[in-house]
Design a protein around this nucleic acid. Structure first.
Lengths: 348, 348
DNA sequence: GGTTGCGATGCAAGCGCTTACATTGGGGAG
DNA sequence: CTCCCCAATGTAAGCGCTTGCATCGCAACC
């Protein structure tokens, strides 16, 4: 119906280009480009002229052109299982801050704990030119790794630590940490334990935490078969429902270990709703030590995870890899026990 | 030390290009391009050949090249004040889902409620080629709007509704909603009210909600000066601290209105900590109706905000604008009162 | 049988940048 | 005073895709 169709259209858009800057500064486009990307090789005087012109024109490089010509986007990608709760928020924030410091933009995608979706996101981020990728955990089809290798996109696996894999990872030992927490629970005299875990399929962190629990039980001579387990989604509501179910089983557990703080918060709420005293009647523990763990009543005994260090460390590794440097071996960080009031002695 | 330097390097990278697909399918690159972007104009037979070649080669278009040649990135941007809590999460999710359906990728940035940072993010997203932008609230320097206009980047303002602005917005009337909530509180017999609000500078939603409270008071013949106000950051911890301070003032309020659910959750926790009975001794209300509002004990009386409809609606508006169509006028959605147990009759 | 019209395709010109390579001009060494 | 070297700059060839325009057949029509 109208004259011309869509798009930022008509004549030359108002956006200045490198050429305009060059003309105004009386130099070639090459010099302007260098001045912006590698100032060291340009003389002081020229640099000043150019920067003035950039200012005056309000020039900003065209992303597409830059990506095309430079074969690099200065964009890193991160694929998280979820953004619905704060589990990955702090780590991601630190990752982001470090990248920003290096002039790199972060592209975030969330896979909703769905392996297929995650694979799709990997492709999508690579297609959008991500120079490097942050991935959570090892569990994904081998073809994802070969794809990244073929495309020569560096990546790092975070939130876990494994030196036995040939992929480089940065994180902590989920199994060991959960074992330590479980031992603390056992030290309080608890013998009837329960575990509320996230779905373990496709989630190596959940699996390892779960194994940590049985490790501790075995180490103390308890039958791991006696562990009452519920596998559910990560959410407050699911945590609550899980606790409700657990408390209907016989024998009733005296301590409920949760795969993360969100589940624990739900369990705690539900316990209160059921008139149970925590930790008098029942002890509850979490994992992650996110903000909510301090806020709830009683304070949640949990495992403090090195969120920020993982984020920053992952950024550093990826930057090194992109630069073609040797990133060194995988990095193990400490996860430390946070003892708060939700864990108490086993009831008589 | 090594041979060649960095980058996805050496010889031709393994990534197939349009040309390769064209060669394999025995057609020109133009045809392949059309086949991918505008299948309708290509014959059935050719399309099949081309798609087969695409499959076989695992071809994916190069983002930079596409952006450069097409002058469009199929990327929309969203700048939120925060991602630390769930306030915007549901709306963003809906926005994202709708865009994905249209083959558009979402770029998210968070401004931490900092106007300067927000301005920077606007520039950054535009520089990265965002075809359109989702912004929260009206409060920002005029130059942001003129910049977007000059660059011809369509945008929509969400989480608020104003038909008096010439910018198009989609949301609800914050002032009216808060007025209604306050009236409900007054209906319960409360006369000594307090308000915990987010910083109102640069945050029109907070300002309007605050005005809604005084509107209601004035309408009922109360002196708005009697409203006890604390302005603080959005966080559970700050909400708790604010309540603590409020309860030290004289006269003590019998009802505390919070600018959002996060503050309210903090206030609720603190009240419990101080041994106050909610709603027996004190009523507390929130705003937003995020998940936490249902979970806390007692359930939080709050205002349910049309998160998902705002997100989806914003996506539709932006898509229309990008296509050069008339998006129509601003959209007003309903925000409805959610009465739960945290609001009770005023103590005698 | 010669036109005409139109759907399907090919041709080739960019899109705005980066960078290998060529060029230039001084300063220092001989 | 030359010559050489190197720092500073310019030249121009793409990067991989989209799209306006030209071309080509072929069916329908006179």
């Amino acid at each position: 119906m109208q004259n011309s169709p869509n798009r930022r259209q008509d004549s030359r858009s108002d956006t200045p280009k490198l050429e305009d800057v060059a003309a105004r500064a009386g130099v070639s486009t090459a010099t302007v480009s260098r001045c912006l990307n590698n100032p060291a090789v340009v003389s002081e005087a020229t640099r000043k002229k150019v920067l003035a012109a950039v200012q005056a024109l309000g020039y900003a490089p065209n992303f597409g052109a830059q990506a095309l010509a430079g074969r690099r986007t200065n964009t890193f990608g991160a694929i998280l299982p979820t953004m619905e709760n704060a589990i990955f928020a702090r780590g991601l924030q630190a990752f982001q801050e470090e990248l920003q410091r290096q002039g790199i933009t972060l592209l975030v995608a969330s896979s909703s704990y769905d392996p297929e979706l995650e694979e799709q996101q990997i492709h999508s981020l690579v297609a959008r030119g991500a120079d490097a990728l942050l991935l959570i955990g090892h569990d994904r089809p081998e073809r994802c790794y070969s794809f990244l290798k073929k495309r020569q996109v560096p990546y790092v696996i975070a939130w876990v630590y494994d030196d036995d894999k040939d992929r480089i990872s940065i994180g902590f030992d989920n199994r060991k940490a959960m074992k330590a927490l479980t031992e603390a629970v056992l030290d309080h005299g608890h013998r009837r334990l329960a575990l509320i875990t996230a779905e373990r399929r496709g989630n190596d962190r959940a699996r390892q935490r779960s194994q940590g629990v049985t490790d501790a039980m075995v180490a103390r001579g308890l039958d791991p078969e006696s562990l009452s387990v519920i596998e559910t989604h990560y959410s407050i509501a699911h945590g609550a429902r899980a606790l409700e179910q657990l408390m209907q089983r016989t024998p009733r557990p005296t301590a409920v270990l949760c795969g993360n703080d969100v589940l624990a918060a739900g369990a705690l709420t539900q316990a209160r709703r059921m008139g149970l005293d925590v930790p008098g009647d029942l002890s509850i523990t979490g994992f992650d030590d996110i903000e909510i763990a301090e806020i709830v009543t009683p304070g949640l005994t949990t495992v403090h995870v090195p969120h920020r260090n993982m984020g920053k460390g992952a950024a550093d590794l990826l930057l090194a890899m992109r630069a073609g440097e040797d990133p060194g071996p995988s990095v193990e960080l400490e996860a430390v026990l946070m003892l708060r009031d939700s864990l108490g002695p086993a009831p008589k």
